[in-house]
Design a binder for these strands. Structure first.
Lengths: 336, 336
DNA sequence: TTGTAGGCGTTATCAA
DNA sequence: TTGATAACGCCTACAA
């Protein structure tokens, strides 16, 4: 009764293992009668085909790996949710890996995946300022890879991103129209492509309104909550911006905390807007103006792209870029 | 160069597959010299042992499955984060399944896992009002199971929970001390054990202060955001409570939205407190008083319990209950 | 210390 | 339509 396998099932029915195996595959020839007999007995004994044996035999795992920088982040948990939905529909399972923004972990995860553990990978990257050639080995193993949101520009593989440049441009334009003249740009790592793209929108929007670009207003933050808190309080006191544009959600929260502590009024003294997928942005004090990315949609699109590659690798151009639109939502933090 | 296996690696080195295999296992006898030669060649050829072949041979997957009701929820993403950390340390991978509070999906996931796909399961359940005997089959397959947070009382298996009764009691006591006399209890499904336990704390706290229990103040909400919005607005208008205690995070948000719409001032006209793992509760308008569960810690404890069972099934009493303390954090929504 | 051989559970090929 | 058999890649007795 313990671990029933195809052999025992066959014996219980007085059939061979190959016949039993056929009952679970649609294409093979088998009489309806025996098939039903097998399936009913399988149900009765609660037989489940061993996944690892099938995988070994069929050389695929019906599993996709999802690698993200962090899990406790609305954007990524929503994206994973989207991926999970598509995967389940296709009968695939998903493995989750969180790099905690550690490039070494990313490399280690990817290396692990070379062993046939997953049939494909969906990843939002962590280590922009490094050598990414280790990813090229994946192609050799025919392990399809799809990037989403945070990508490596020097690796050619399909990707799902949002219109970061335009979104930033529009956000900054909004701040300027609300009267801001000294807008700080808060970024975790300004060398990351996603940070750069978003910064370019910032720069160009300033230019459009003839506001000079000031290097001091680019604030490079860290992974550490505590350090950021110091950096931001320092910024508020010394740089005295009248607007803040944050490239990631948690920097907006950090700005709020700093303002609370220094009694800086949002939006009167400082207007704040940021990229964020937070569903309760309207409940913040003040409600937070956001550039909202369609996180779940991004996950769904990335998964669908990956499945297309799995079905036919040639059907997807490696240069494929799916660009989804983010949405500017004006709320009280920008005095709207 | 494509998919290198142990055989090719052996040939490249002029060795047998068994010798090569030994190089990757610590215990076996092998000369240091050959071992190093093998490992360096393995690195050079980027050899990774095929996971499925090993699993098939060793009859275990070095993978644990995590089943949760939802992913887009701070509590669960933090818990998963904790599980992931422990699993990675142990060299395990984690498979994620989201039931979306659908009992049928839960059953289907569990059934899938009978096939050796995972060595153990960590689950927060979705289908209280159903037959749970399907879970008993897991024991037969020697698939250890650990519950966390949302559990089935009728299934005997180790669990990690929080002191829900006390937390509710203290929360209600806090509301009463802040002057509340008509406290509504918002619950998703009052028949769920977790809802019941939390409600008992509510009832007993009322009793302690000689406040009569009023059935009308128990508000049974739904999974649907829209329906809840209607229910809550209705409640505010008709039942007119002066305090609200929510058993899950999102009902607190829903209460805020309803109050905003009806211009009910929190905390002057209505005090609100709820179970929530939201890290930015201080940033809400008004800042939200919470009963904060140690989500990450819960995940870590659950994972450690599971690994103990994997190492020695007899070392863990099936009746084991790890009870962690939640923390009452008083903020402005209760006028503190 | 190293090699040989058999089997983990499944599926595909071939023969009956 | 069904059965025997080999193979997927790895690990481990056992033999050398």
């Amino acid at each position: 009764m313990d671990n029933i396998n195809i052999k025992e099932l066959a014996r219980a029915l007085g059939l061979s293992t190959s016949t039993v195996s056929r009952a679970f595959r649609d294409n093979s020839d088998i009489s309806k009668e025996t098939k039903e007999r097998i399936l009913s007995m399988a149900k009765q004994l609660n037989y489940q085909p061993n996944h690892y044996a099938s995988n070994l035999r069929e050389q695929r795992s019906k599993t996709i790996a999802v690698i993200v920088p962090e899990l406790a982040n609305n954007f990524f948990s929503q994206a994973i949710h989207g991926i999970e939905r598509v995967a389940r529909e296709k009968g695939y399972h998903i493995l989750i890996y969180a790099t905690e923004d550690d490039f070494a972990k990313e490399v280690s995860f990817i290396r692990h995946l070379h062993n046939g553990r997953a049939d494909g990978i969906i990843m939002s990257v962590s280590g922009e300022a490094n050598d990414h050639t280790y990813l090229n080995e994946l192609a050799k193993k025919r392990l399809p890879l799809v990037f989403f949101d945070r990508v490596y520009e020097d690796i050619i593989t399909p990707r799902v991103i949002t219109n970061d440049y335009q979104s930033s441009f529009i956000a900054i334009q909004h701040l300027i129209k609300q009267g801001c003249k000294r807008i700080a740009y808060l970024v975790i790592n300004k060398n990351l492509s996603i940070g750069k793209t978003r910064m370019q929108g910032y720069i160009d929007a300033l230019a459009k309104f003839n506001i000079p670009f000031d290097e001091d207003l680019i604030i490079d933050c860290t992974q550490s909550y505590k350090k950021n808190h110091v950096i931001l309080k320092d910024m508020l006191k010394k740089i005295k911006p009248d607007g803040v544009f944050t490239s990631v959600e948690r920097l907006a929260f950090a700005t709020y905390y700093a303002c609370y502590e220094l009694n800086v009024n949002i939006p009167d003294q400082l207007k704040v807007i940021g990229f964020s997928s937070l569903e309760i942005a309207p409940l913040l004090n003040p409600s937070l103006s956001t550039i909202t990315q369609p996180a779940t949609k991004i996950g769904i699109e990335a998964a669908e792209l990956l499945f297309k590659m799995l079905e036919d690798p040639l059907s997807v151009d490696p240069h494929k870029r799916v660009v989804l639109d983010s949405k500017l939502v004006k709320r009280n933090s920008t005095g709207a």
